[in-house]
């Protein structure tokens, strides 16, 4: 009992995003009961909710890296381009070489990590503002991806990739397993060691952290490396989806969705807090909206408007100011009642 009360004490914030997601899904379920139906088909679960989970994986994985970077008071705009580059590298390796699949994975993830390393060096050792340092790659990255593939979309035939793209294990899509594993590893890495605490400390106050003996600069580099690696994994999942690396469009605008997911999780862009689980919820909220829009018949011109309005509503629900305002209204009405 006492423990439970403490748990609630720690994180009153966590209910905001979860509440928003549940409300959205419940409303949709009432409007269209088919939306929340889940069937068992061809050895895997099938339904809109499963689609949402499956579709959200790339964004969620990127957002995981983004959450860490934002926690250190940085931002990584290059992730969309890293997705394209690493997707291109993986596709070209599969088509042009005989490398075993796990080597392809390792090389792509290393490429992603390497790009993250460059970002990190620019931010933390050269001292370029994160938004500018990562903008460089955001702009030039897609060109690099084109160089990798010689300007063409590369399609490939790979059983391993097919499994990642649309396979299922125990009726659950493989990519969900991948995401779950990644989230668990990250949670273990950040919360079962002191790494998460150090990253947050650096994000909240880099100067004070240095005086505490925390290697602030190195930690920032690590955050960017992690973000690059996450983007690489997301890139591979995205190309596995359709067995093609469409570099021109691969990962386009994903950085914005990832940032949004982190913000929906309740993190501040000023750094200092990393919410891993909630970031995944944030990504799910975004994907739920996208799926709803696709299946609702909204004319395409309104896609983004509808999405923006709902997200604004969610952010409003979660905002401190709104909460304060509501509680103020409540005490005022109480006072009035007392006065009468």
């Amino acid at each position: 009992m006492k423990e439970r009360k403490k748990f609630l004490d720690i994180n009153p914030k966590i209910w905001g995003p979860i509440f928003s997601l549940v409300v959205i899904i419940v409303i949709m379920g009432i409007i269209d009961p088919g939306f929340i139906q889940i069937e068992f088909k061809d050895g895997r679960l099938y339904g809109s909710l499963i689609d949402i989970l499956v579709r959200a994986t790339p964004t969620a994985i990127i957002a995981l890296g983004m959450a860490v970077v934002i926690g250190t008071k940085g931002i990584d705009l290059s992730v969309g381009s890293v997705v394209a580059i690493c997707g291109a590298v993986a596709a070209v390796l599969i088509v042009e070489t005989q490398l075993p699949f796990f080597m392809v994975v390792i090389v792509s993830v290393l490429v992603g990590g390497g790009i993250g390393f460059l970002n990190g060096i620019m931010v933390s050792f050269i001292g370029i503002q994160p938004i500018i340092a990562t903008l460089i790659l955001m702009v030039s990255g897609r060109g690099i991806a084109q160089l990798v593939t010689g300007g063409r979309a590369v399609s490939f035939d790979s059983t391993a990739m097919d499994i990642i793209g649309s396979g299922a294990l125990l009726a659950i899509p493989v990519r969900l397993w991948i995401m779950t594993a990644l989230v668990l590893c990250t949670v273990l890495l950040l919360r079962k060691t002191a790494l998460g605490l150090f990253l947050e400390s650096v994000g909240a106050n880099a100067k004070a952290s240095r005086l505490l003996g925390i290697e602030a600069r190195m930690l920032k580099v690590i955050a960017y490396i992690f973000s690059g690696m996450c983007a690489a994994v997301a890139g591979m999942i995205l190309i596995a989806d359709v067995s093609t690396a469409e570099i021109n469009r691969l990962g386009l605008w994903l950085e914005l969705d990832a940032i949004l997911a982190v913000v929906l999780a309740g993190a501040s862009l000023n750094g200092g807090r990393i919410y891993l689980g909630l970031t995944i919820i944030g990504a799910l909220i975004i994907q739920t909206l996208t799926t709803i829009i696709f299946s609702s018949g909204v004319p395409v011109e309104y896609n983004l408007i509808v999405k923006a309005c709902i997200i604004l509503a969610v952010l409003l629900i979660q905002s401190e100011t709104t909460k304060n305002y509501v509680s103020q209204l409540r005490t005022k009405s109480l006072e009035n009642r007392h006065a009468e």
Binding site: G47, E246, F294, S295
Partner: peptide, 18 residues
């Protein structure tokens, strides 16, 4: 479907369901 295979797949999935 924003010109992409992934986009086409995602939209088609939701059409098939709705």
């Amino acid at each position: 479907g924003s010109w992409s295979a992934t986009g086409g797949k995602e939209v088609m999935e939701s059409f098939l369901k709705s």
